[in-house]
């Protein structure tokens, strides 16, 4: 596993929370660097060069979002934020500032570990070319812009492909409305959320077995969407796509 022995930076002022995170990550074989404040966190991110950062949004000295901005100024490392339930809008701001995913306090470590794994896989994938994705019985080749469901070709429009590709670039992680609208329709459309609703519905109708209870194109209410899909080895995918 490439992600074991990865170094995780935890920026969190509550010692008790750091303690259980240390225990949970340690048990999974990760190395943990702890910072008890935002300023310290921003410095530790530079000196320890972790593979991933976990940042509490409610820090005593500087805003967690500020820490994200400082890290993003020089590093694309995956960032997962810990947000309080009462401050739901703050997590959206954090995601738009460059965080990759979030976990809402209180959380179980299982949930956090799943997010960490998805984020680290994302880094590993960045170096391995455009993926073929399997969404249940649908198979998508993003590079060739082809989609199949079982043996049948599925026609996706240009925008549908672009939307799917944007979600796929952040496979397993949440992508905010703002990010999707900016990347698919352009920065003048950041408020046109209704575009997203319509096109996500079309994608689900075409790719999901039960569009009302999607298993792959997941809604993150008030935040954005998340694509859950299996990556398929290119040759397997090629065989499936070329021999219907």
């Amino acid at each position: 596993m490439p992600d074991s022995r990865a170094t995780i930076l935890v920026v969190e002022d509550e010692p008790e929370i750091r303690r259980f995170l240390r225990a949970a990550f340690g048990a999974e074989g990760y190395r943990v660097v702890e910072s008890a404040s935002g300023r310290r966190g921003a410095i530790d991110a530079g000196s320890h060069k972790p593979d991933l950062a976990i940042i509490d949004l409610a820090l005593p000295d500087i805003d967690g979002i500020e820490v994200i901005r400082q890290i993003r100024a020089w590093s694309p490392m995956p960032i997962i934020v810990l947000s309080a339930r009462i401050a739901e809008r703050a997590k959206i701001e954090a995601l738009d500032a460059g965080a990759d995913d979030y976990v809402t306090k209180p959380f179980g470590v299982g949930e956090l570990l799943a997010r960490v794994r998805a984020a680290l896989r994302h880094v590993a994938r960045a170096n391995s070319g455009a993926p073929h994705l399997r969404l249940g019985d649908a198979l998508v080749d993003l590079q060739a812009r082809r989609a199949m469901r079982g043996d049948v070709d599925v026609h996706l429009t240009r925008i549908e492909f672009r939307l799917l590709a944007t979600l796929a670039r952040h496979l397993g992680m949440v992508v905010t409305h703002r990010q999707l609208l900016t990347e698919v329709w352009g920065p003048t459309h950041v408020n046109d959320t209704h575009y997203l609703r319509i096109y996500m519905k079309q994608l689900r109708d075409k790719l999901e077995a039960d569009p009302v209870r999607p298993q792959h194109l997941i809604t993150e209410t008030g935040v954005g969407y998340r694509l859950l899909a299996d990556e398929v080895r290119a040759d397997d995918a090629q065989r499936a796509l070329s021999n219907p």
Binding site: T193, R197, M200, P211, V212, R213, P214, T219, E220, T221
Partner: peptide
């Protein structure tokens, strides 16, 4: 209220999840 255009189908989906 942070009003936005929303699909009830997506709301149902995310509640059930």
């Amino acid at each position: 209220l942070q009003r936005d255009w929303v699909s009830l189908s997506e709301i149902v989906e995310s509640v059930l999840a």
